[in-house]
């Protein structure tokens, strides 16, 4: 309560205890699964299935042993999955962003033929569910022998109409025509004007689109599940799904696989959580662009 009196000195004491408590409950709810995974990835099979407290550590805490098992199981296939996910997220994310930045800028700054029509197609594409494309894209790719290759996952991730829409809105508002005209009058070509004048102004939204599309590729499940049959090409989402299916199918014999899955879930989450904490300020600027229009 001494806090409150201290805050009272300030201009506007905005500390509502009931609201903060409500929020506290919600925070606990949002963190419970993480806590469960952190606690239970320290357990071996007897610790998991021995009937001890499921929300607290068992007597034996063995993170290193479980980690070692995770990365050596089946010739280290899990490490491969993580690398695959990273490759898909980077290639898909960077590719989609480059296309979206160029297209968004083009739509915002040039009055070219069929511009309105093309842009309304992009807006329409926002409403096409991505998964509706998976089966026909699979059929198309299988004609070209592209299924079960990394391209089957990377190429479809290049399509990001929402990124184009975001970049269009941002370029329209944040890049004044006058500056572009001034650069042109100084003799800069169109591409130099784009790279050296417009691009730096668009950077906040570029980072947002990059993050959004990289996360979308990292999270992808349906597409790689349909496209890939070689488990050495799997991203970590499909790999863990596979393990979980195997573990639940023969419940008794696969107790050790469960501790791998739990550890695997934890490890797959760590890089994203770190990325979120370090890059968080880039999220809000770009998201507000999408939200306010």
């Amino acid at each position: 309560m001494s806090d409150r009196s201290r805050a009272g000195v300030r201009r506007r004491p905005q500390r509502h205890l009931p609201l903060q408590m409500l929020l506290g409950f919600l925070v606990v709810y949002f963190l419970v699964p993480f806590w469960w995974v952190i606690v239970n990835s320290s357990k071996d099979a007897p610790g998991l299935f021995g009937g001890g407290n499921t929300l607290w550590f068992a007597d034996r805490i063995d993170y290193l042993g479980n980690l070692q098992q995770l990365f050596t199981y089946d010739n280290g296939i899990y490490g491969r999955w993580i690398l695959n996910s990273t490759l898909y997220a980077l290639a898909g994310g960077v590719g989609a962003t480059v296309l979206a930045v160029m297209a968004g800028y083009g739509f915002a700054k040039y009055r070219f033929a069929a511009r309105r029509f093309s842009f309304s197609l992009v807006l329409g594409a926002l409403m096409v569910p991505a998964t509706a494309l998976v089966i026909p894209t699979f059929m198309m790719f299988s004609e070209f022998g592209l299924t079960n290759t990394i391209w089957a996952v990377i190429l479809p991730s290049l399509l990001n109409p929402f990124g184009v829409y975001l970049m269009h809105v941002y370029a329209r508002d944040a890049v004044p025509d006058e500056i572009l005209d001034a650069a042109r009058a100084d003799g800069a070509g169109e591409i130099r004007t784009f790279l050296q004048v417009a691009f730096p102004l668009m950077r906040p939204a570029v980072v947002t689109v990059l993050l959004l599309s990289a996360v979308a590729s990292w999270n992808n499940y349906f597409l790689p599940l349909a496209m890939l049959s070689d488990n050495r090409l799997f991203p970590v989402t499909v790999g863990l799904g596979l393990w979980q299916g195997i573990a639940s199918a023969n419940n008794a014999g696969s107790t050790s696989l469960w501790s791998l899955i739990i550890m695997g879930a934890l490890v797959s989450v760590v890089p994203l959580v770190i990325a979120f904490f370090t890059l968080q300020r880039h999220w809000r600027g770009g998201l507000s662009v999408g939200g306010l229009r």
């Binding site: 995974v37 999270n219 979980q244 879930a265 797959s268 989450v269």
Partner: peptide, 10 residues
């Protein structure tokens, strides 16, 4: 930040 698949697994 968590893939929906991992969320469902958790």
């Amino acid at each position: 930040a968590i893939p929906t698949v991992i969320g469902a697994v958790m």
